[in-house]
Design a protein around this nucleic acid. Structure first.
Length: 314
DNA sequence: TTCCAGGGGTAGA
DNA sequence: TCTACCCATGGA
């Protein structure tokens, strides 16, 4: 099977994949030498398809060695579009960058399509798994979720991310002990159950058109999603006017502006002129700082970058 | 051992 | 609305 998709004018594959840590999380596997993203896309509770994504010239090519049903093919197309944000227009942000002495490189590399997951459910679970832990632990938790409850491909060689229905059927203590989720197990189990039993409608959140503030409020109704997680998920949903304040942001801002007193309000003020792209402006600065410290992001490995960040000693 | 990591929930003021 | 305290886990 081979799917070919046209890309927006300002699309750059490397930027789209390697400027957000999700490319290091299961079921994604990035091949830095060939510049290909291998992943497994979950179709339903019993079907998943392993695909290889590459992007020569002005197109994205998705290939799979398995025979694919027609409906599954459509779902793979939608999933890849979502992951690479092929429907977003970031040219206004790139125009702003070109006028900025600090962010000009962001315009040049077409920075801003931060990789997301095939589904919003997968995004939310992964964000919960980043809360109050080191990156290596996040990687391990997501690895184990996919390893134990991921949907296997027909040949059984890989697994897609578990569906809400699948995780809803696993008792929280089992999630905790097998995936080492800690107290996050209850949040993830509750989220999966609420979706599976139709108490929570993720499509309403995904298609929400109101102000970002209201979207944040909607997300925070979900146990386990606080201010940081809600802001990060809001970003994943394609809104960049909310800053996700976490320990990384605090560290970065203190280092960059040692004379300035840190307060979330002052950071918001600092990025105000990037409206509505505050998050992307901040993320480019943070990502550039990481690249200066640890080398090109497309060469990062999940465990390697985790250890490097921890060893930084903050 | 102790600290802390890309926080969040809850109770009490 | 703000603060203190607790919550699993694992690496340094």
């Amino acid at each position: 099977m081979r799917i070919v998709m046209a890309t927006p004018m300002d699309f750059a594959f490397l930027s789209a994949v390697c400027t957000h840590g999700f490319f290091m999380l299961a079921p994604n596997h990035w091949d830095p030498r060939r510049q290909r993203l291998a992943t497994t896309i979950t179709i339903d509770d019993s079907t998943a398809v392993a695909v290889m994504i590459r992007a020569p010239d002005a197109m994205v090519i998705v290939r799979s060695d398995e025979p694919i049903r027609k409906d599954a093919r459509a779902m793979i197309r939608l999933a890849v579009r979502r992951m690479l944000r092929l429907d977003e227009d970031l040219s206004p942000f790139h125009s702003l960058c070109r006028q900025s002495p600090t962010h000009r490189p962001a315009g040049r590399i077409r920075f801003g399509r931060l990789l997301r997951s095939a589904t919003l459910f997968e995004d939310i679970v992964k964000v919960i798994c980043t809360c109050n832990v080191g990156w290596t632990h996040t990687v391990n938790m997501v690895d184990k979720l996919v390893e134990h409850w991921g949907i296997p491909t027909a040949d059984g060689t890989s697994r897609g991310f578990p569906t809400p229905q699948r995780l809803a059927g696993i008792p929280a203590p089992e999630l905790k002990s097998k995936a080492r989720l800690g107290y996050r197990a209850d949040f993830i189990h509750r989220l999966a159950r609420d979706i599976a039993e139709e108490r929570m409608d993720l499509s309403a959140i995904a298609n929400f058109t109101g102000p970002s503030e209201d979207l944040m409020r909607l997300l925070r109704e979900c146990k386990g999603i606080g201010p940081y997680a809600a802001a990060h998920i809001t970003m994943l949903l394609g809104r960049y006017d909310r800053l996700a304040v976490d320990t990384e942001m605090v560290r970065f801002f203190k280092e960059k502006h040692p004379r300035r007193k840190f307060a979330p309000a002052s950071v918001e003020k600092y990025y105000r002129h990037w409206q509505p792209y505050q998050f992307l402006a901040y993320w480019f600065e943070l990502w550039s700082d990481y690249v200066a410290r640890h080398g090109r992001s497309e060469q990062w490995s999940a465990q390697g970058i985790g250890k490097a960040i921890t060893a930084r000693g903050h």
